[in-house]
């Protein structure tokens, strides 16, 4: 049921070395909580993204364990330090085993 999943990430293009930048991420996903019922009264099975990680050049920035109480199209905003030019890797892990990845590079101004 994970159709139309599209990650969106906002990272500044440039930063000064050692600067803390704000990163915003959003992934379109219905985040079915497992609490809702369909028209026949059957429970709709849970189908969510259960983990999100952000790494910069292989070093961890943030690792979020997600539970059903996170809204549809989970949005996260956090800060990261940029010690050098490189790539941010964003990874989302779906309940069904799918992994969604995207990356953004950043230059030192």
């Amino acid at each position: 049921m994970a159709s139309g999943v599209k990650p969106r990430v906002k990272v500044p293009k440039k930063a000064t070395a050692g600067e803390a930048i704000t990163i915003k991420t959003l992934i379109s996903h219905q985040m079915e909580s497992g609490q809702r019922k369909d028209k026949e009264g059957n429970l709709i099975p849970r189908s969510i993204i259960n983990r999100f990680t952000c790494e910069f050049n292989g070093q961890l920035v943030v690792d979020v364990t997600i539970e059903p109480a996170v809204s549809t199209n989970p949005y996260f905003q956090f800060e990261a330090i940029v010690p050098e030019a490189g790539d941010f890797a964003f990874t989302w892990y779906d309940d069904d085993g799918s992994v969604y990845e995207t990356s953004k590079s950043i230059a030192i101004a």
């Binding site: 920035v61 809204s71 905003q77 956090f78």
Partner: peptide, 25 residues
């Protein structure tokens, strides 16, 4: 909530500040 857990944020060495924003149910 029916299940109290919402999210757990683990911060790595490159976290700029130990803060995060999200949207919850």
């Amino acid at each position: 909530n029916p299940t109290p857990g919402v999210a757990t944020f683990n911060f790595g060495p490159l976290a700029g500040s130990q803060s995060a924003a999200t949207r919850i149910r």
